[in-house]
Design a protein around this nucleic acid. Sequence first.
DNA 1: AATCCCTACAACCGCCCTTAC
DNA 2: CGTAAGGGCGGTTGTAGGGAT
Length: 250
Amino acid sequence: MGRAPCCDKATVKRGPWSPEEDAVLRSHIEEYGTGGNWITLPKKAGLNRCGKSCRLRWLNYLRPDIKHGGFTEEEDNIICSLYRKLGSRWSVIASHLRGRTDNDVKNYWNTKLKKKLMTPAIITSIIPSPTPASLLPTVRAEPYNNRSDISRSVDSIFALTQDSHKFYSEPSPLPRECRAQETGQLHRHSRSEEVSATSSTFTVDDGSSNSYANDLFLSELDLRYLTDLLGDDGCQAEVPQGLHRSIAYW
DNA sequence: AATCCCTACAACCGCCCTTAC
DNA sequence: CGTAAGGGCGGTTGTAGGGAT
């Protein structure tokens, strides 16, 4: 049995809030507070809205200390830095920015920052020329079981490539959303089987309609770091001595 | 002028966590 | 201890507005 819905979606109003509704919610909260119960608040305030919707409206828009738009360079840097460390924990990141909400930060990241860090020119600049197949290592990989695993791993890879930018002349962002398409002699086998990798194409989907494809190789150092990051999490890689490049695989 | 496309962001959805009973 | 309800969060969708064609 699933849990009961918090409100009757057929009868409560949805969609954009009107200025009148904003005024009612604002004055109710200013006078009585939230009462510690968002579910009952709309009824008390005389609003035909879901309690969760009221909470979101208040926290993300009506709260008096909210700052809208116009992220500064300093805020950009804080967001990027924290994203490197934390991944998409927007509420934690937002807590480091006065007057910003998690929704604000998330939207800003998805619409501006991510793209700013991922222009095709930068991507091209960080991708080394392909290594001869004979020089490429064997990669042992275990497939991830579900989307959240993949998402987590991509966050880690993003963090890895951000941290490794010092090895390149430019920042080396790897987008969160990317899919490995198996090509050449890269073969995915069942869990724990060994794969031999000579080539892989990553289709890069940056969340907009733009997409880029290229051969993408990580440096040996990066792969060692990647292995450290993900090794116990379902992805392992073996890098023979003396090889210069390897391949990330999940 | 009309239509299409893109961007920004508000709002919703659904899941997980916490807490009260 | 188990269950149900509310809160919180990240991901996704909807839509208004502006620019391009």
